[in-house]
Amino acid sequence: MASSPLSAGNSMSIMTADWRDFVALTKPRVMTLVVFTGLCGLLAAPGHVHPVLAFTAILCIALGAGAAAALNQWYEADIDAKMKRTANRPLPGGRMDRQTALHFGVGLSFFSVLLMGMATNWLAAAVLAVSILFYVFIYTIWLKPRTAQNIVIGGAAGAFPPVIGWAAVTGDISALPVALFMLIFFWTPPHFWALALFVKIDYAAAGIPMLPVVAGEVATRRQIWFYTAIMAVAAMAPVLLNLTGPIYGTVALLATALFAFFAFQVFRRRESDPASMGPEKRLFKYSILYLFLLFGAVVVDRWLMA
């Protein structure tokens, strides 16, 4: 009997895997937003850091995010093989074995944390380590396969980058990075559940208890609307607490109003046809732009206030 792609030997994976597969393990598209929010946290922080050290800090955030993504794919290789949108990743595609992915992820994790500590400070390194461990152990291994609320708690993993960027400059954590953390934390459920609505067949096939699979579309749409309301409060918190100025306040108000409009369109729908998921896809795509807009506004505002 022929062996499956996931059980193929190391020698085969070494011969077939190339640099593009290692890059794919780091989920570079997802990493873009992680790096940007980390960079904004660094640029918004008071004080000065040498450009080389600043670059190193952002590189460490990127490497840490890539390491967590690689470990996620190592652990979920069998699950990825059952889902259409992930079946061609390096492991389920048979181009790399799980041991190689594990070694790559662990090595990248240690390197990113140690480099961050030596280049900036050990608080930033510690928060980076916590973010990697949280994503791998709390979200990937514990929450994701067990509860439909996985993305609510697990969303904290993606909220750490602005805190790391800020700590790399200041060596401490103050109110603004915490507010930015909370913004990403409450942004994650409506962002991710919008995606889950139009790929729920994949999650069902893989046995992952995402909210649309276990609670249905109506409940998911209701939760998207509920968390959008909480996210709106978190989005306005920096200006209400006088942590940012009118530029951020204006951008946050307008961008959040548009987010709420798209979320309401998703909320009021009851269709379940995957071919008619326009509002869900629109909310998902806009939610990414939304975070870019708000974090960019934070940096501009902080620079003008300085």
Rank of each mutant, 00 (worst) to 15 (best):
S4R: 14
N10Q: 00
S11H: 13
I14F: 05
M15I: 03
T16L: 14
T16V: 09
A17H: 00
D21C: 08
F22T: 00
R29Q: 07
T32I: 13
T32H: 06
V35H: 00
F36L: 10
G38K: 08
G38M: 07
L39I: 09
C40T: 12
L42C: 09
H50T: 14
H50C: 02
P51I: 02
L53R: 15
T56D: 12
C60F: 08
L63S: 12
G66R: 14
A69V: 03
N72F: 04
N72I: 02
Q73P: 12
W74C: 01
A87V: 08
A87Y: 05
N88C: 00
N88T: 01
L91V: 03
R98C: 05
Q99H: 13
V106F: 09
F111S: 15
F111W: 11
G117S: 09
N121H: 07
A126L: 13
V127W: 01
L128S: 11
L128M: 01
A129G: 10
A129M: 12
I132M: 02
L133V: 11
L133H: 10
Y139F: 03
K144C: 01
K144Q: 02
T147Y: 06
T147V: 13
A148V: 12
A148K: 07
N150D: 09
V152Y: 09
A156K: 13
P161W: 00
I164V: 14
G165A: 04
D172M: 03
I173H: 12
P177T: 02
F181N: 00
L183N: 02
F186V: 03
W187C: 01
P190R: 03
A196M: 11
F198A: 06
V199A: 09
D202Q: 01
Y203A: 03
A205C: 04
I208E: 10
G216K: 04
E217T: 07
R221C: 08
M231E: 07
A234W: 01
A235K: 05
A237D: 09
V239H: 06
L240A: 14
I247P: 15
L253K: 06
L254D: 00
L254T: 01
A263H: 04
V266I: 12
R269K: 15
R269Y: 03
A275R: 15
M277T: 14
M277P: 04
G278I: 07
P279D: 13
K285M: 07
L294T: 12
F295Q: 08
V300F: 06
R302Y: 01
R302D: 00
M305L: 14
